[in-house]
C-alpha cells in the first residue's frame, strides 16, 4: 500500500500526540508544525519510520507581527521510494533564534542551514561551521528579515519614490 498524507499524519499523531499540530495540505503537500525542541525527533522519526530520507530544503520565513514566534524554520522532505513530499515548520522567538541543527542526520543540512543563518539569522545550535555562505563576510545584518529594505542603501542617484527607498514602504505602514 502506498504512503499517503493521511497515513503520514496518522503515524505522526500516534507517535507524537499533541506535539504535532496544525496539519494542512496546501496544493496537496502535507504541512504541519511542531515545537522547536522537537524538530530533530520529528526528522529522525520521519527518516526511520516513514522513509523521508531526502532533505530537499531548509529555509525560514519572517513574520514580524507574530510576537514570540517571528521566525519559522521550514523543513522540506522527500520520500524517494514512495515519491511523496512533506514539509514542517518550527517557530521561534526572534530574540532567541536557537534551533537544533540537523547536520547529524543530513549532511546536506550543513549548507542549507548556513544559508538560512546568513539570510535570517537563525542560530543552529551544534552546527559545525555556522558562518555566512552567500553574502559578504562583513555584512552585519540578516538581509531577508523584513525590517531591512531590499534596495541598496548607498545609491543617491535614483528617485526614492520610484524605487521604494525611504519614506512610506510597506513595512513602515505595518500592512503585514
Amino acid at each position: 500500500m502506498s504512503l499517503t498524507n493521511e497515513i503520514v499524519q496518522q503515524r505522526l499523531t500516534e507517535y507524537f500526540g499533541e506535539a504535532v499540530f496544525n496539519f494542512t495540505a496546501p496544493y496537496g503537500m502535507l504541512t504541519f508544525e511542531t515545537p522547536k525542541e522537537n524538530n530533530l525527533k520529528v526528522l529522525q522519526f520521519l527518516y526511520d519510520e516513514l522513509g523521508f530520507q531526502f532533505l530537499t530544503d531548509v529555509t525560514a520565513v519572517h513574520y514580524p507581527n507574530d510576537k514570540g514566534r517571528e521566525l519559522a524554520v521550514v523543513y522540506h522532505l522527500h520520500n524517494l521510494v514512495e515519491n511523496i513530499r512533506i514539509r514542517f515548520k518550527v517557530f521561534t522567538d526572534i530574540n532567541t533564534p536557537d534551533v537544533f541543527t540537523a547536520t547529524r542526520l543530513f549532511e546536506s543540512a550543513n549548507w542549507q542551514e548556513r544559508e538560512t543563518y546568513d539570510f535570517y539569522g537563525v542560530n543552529f545550535v551544534g552546527h559545525p561551521n555556522l558562518r555566512r555562505i552567500m553574502n559578504v563576510d562583513e555584512m552585519d545584518y540578516f538581509p531577508q528579515r523584513k525590517e531591512y529594505p531590499v534596495e541598496d542603501q548607498t545609491r543617491r542617484d535614483k528617485d526614492d519614490e520610484m524605487f521604494g527607498r525611504g519614506g512610506d514602504t510597506a513595512f513602515t505602514k505595518d500592512v503585514y
Partner: peptide
C-alpha cells in the same frame, strides 16, 4: 550602475 539589481547584494 548595478542595473536592475538595486539590492543589498549587488555592487552598484
Amino acid at each position: 550602475s548595478g542595473g536592475i539589481f538595486d539590492t543589498y547584494s549587488v555592487l552598484q
